[in-house]
Amino acid sequence: MTQSDKHPPLAVARLPRNAAIDLLRGLSILLVVVHHIALRIPLRDGGLETLLPRSLLNAFVYNGYEAVFLFFVISGFLITSNALDRWGSLATIDVRAFYVRRSTRILPCLVLLMLVLSALHLFGVPFLTIKGEGQSLSRALLAVFTLHLNWYEGMTGYLPGNWDVLWSLSIEEVFYLGFPLLCLLLRKQSALLLLLALLALSLPITRAALAGNEIWQEKAYLPGMAAIATGVIAALLAHQMREPGMRTRRALCVLGVVGIACNLLFGSLLWKLLGNGLMLVLTLSAGILLVALHRETSNAPRGTHWLASMGRLSYEIYLTHMFIVFGVVAIYSKVDADPWFGFLWYAPVVVLCWLLGAALAHGWSIPCDRALRARWLRRSKVPVATL
């Protein structure tokens, strides 16, 4: 047997995408983008408020934080599902391949973003210069690459918007640094499920325990990891279950959608009843919905392909959308636009965010991802798939 027979060349087939989950990711990134516009171009007292109930407007523009927790659940679900497809079991996960895949997906865009943001900081560009007390460019870079930017903000205050969005990346990547090692250590899926369930259900407790520091409460590791754990559990259950019948899937879809919708639409009312438990309702509902969508094979419904596309580009859009938001807000302020027509600025921002994300994905992150995986996973037998 030759050396090449022992280590076959890397396959280049792509694992199929799930359009329904792309739509859920698209909704999440849309809520994040709109939220960051609304903080700077409010819809209150604008034209839309004369046509739509305030509760509906609030659900659309002020749920960016909740949308990040939807991302966490989806991330845990997709990462685990792809790991199960590749290795059959989390107990046989290839740690090196897992880390390589995370690195090639995350690092090209992140490194490029850090180079751009560092240059803009050094040139003193408004909205992009780090000026907070106890904050510096070198310290922010260290926090980004050592995955504790969320803690850094909790201790020193908010960073400029383009830096601030990276808090969620610190939580995700710390989780995924330990995740494959935990899978190998526990071996038994029942033990892993028990540990993940304890983490998932701890979300209200850990958030309540951090109430003394508003920034840290929002961005602490454990609540975010609890949401990711919910996604992992959902993926394990979805792969373990027999294919559910149409009625069961519809019931799960309805339950998941209702839970998410109630959280987004009536969050302020339900908070009085559930408190921090409201975030647990959101993550569990998202997990239930993902179980229902796991074997969905249909294409995105007509008229929603743009949203599914945003879902596919969610990482690139998330990292770069604040460039567009700050640019458009600067123009909005310069021309002294009438706030009554503020809602007209939202659609162009979303389109521009999509265009920038698409340019970054197709011009940089996807080519880098493929090239690095082809080099570093040369001996792998499994398909190259972009998460």
Rank of each mutant, 00 (worst) to 15 (best):
H294V: 02
A229C: 01
A197W: 06
C262Y: 01
V328I: 13
I228G: 03
G303R: 03
H294P: 00
G259P: 09
L222I: 14
G256V: 05
I288P: 01
F326M: 15
I228F: 05
L280I: 10
A292G: 11
V258N: 10
G259E: 07
L284G: 06
L236W: 02
I260N: 00
I288N: 00
P204N: 04
V329S: 03
I205A: 09
F326E: 10
V325L: 01
E218I: 06
L264V: 06
H294Q: 11
N263H: 15
A200I: 04
L293W: 01
C253M: 13
T320V: 12
G287M: 05
L289G: 06
L274G: 07
E243C: 07
N299I: 08
V325I: 11
V329W: 05
M241H: 10
F266L: 14
E218L: 13
V281T: 11
L290P: 00
I331W: 14
L252A: 13
L210F: 09
G275Y: 01
I288M: 09
L198S: 11
T206F: 06
G259L: 09
V232F: 04
A208T: 11
G231E: 07
V291R: 00
R207W: 05
W216Q: 15
A211T: 09
C253R: 14
L269R: 14
L274D: 02
S202Q: 07
A208L: 09
S285R: 10
K272Y: 10
A227K: 04
A226S: 13
G287P: 05
L222P: 03
V257P: 00
T248W: 01
N276G: 03
Y318R: 03
P301E: 07
E214Y: 11
Q217C: 11
A308F: 02
L293D: 09
G327M: 02
A234P: 03
R250K: 12
T230Q: 14
G267W: 05
Y318W: 02
K272A: 14
Q240A: 15
E316W: 10
Q217S: 14
Y318V: 08
L313E: 04
L198A: 15
L193Q: 15
M279V: 12
K219M: 12
T248N: 06
M322R: 07
P301L: 09
A211R: 05
S268C: 06
L252M: 14
L313F: 05
C262K: 05
L252Y: 03
P244Q: 04
H294C: 12
L236K: 08
W306M: 06
E218W: 12
R249E: 13
L210K: 01
Q217M: 11
R247K: 07
R249D: 02
A197Y: 07
K272F: 07
L290W: 02
S202T: 04
G303A: 08
G231Y: 08
F326H: 03
E296I: 08
L284D: 01
V281S: 01
R312K: 13
H321C: 04
K272M: 12
P204W: 01
L293S: 08
A220E: 08
I205K: 01
Y221G: 15
A226G: 02
L282H: 10
E316P: 02
M279D: 10
V328R: 12
L203V: 11
L210C: 05
L198G: 11
G224H: 00
T230W: 12
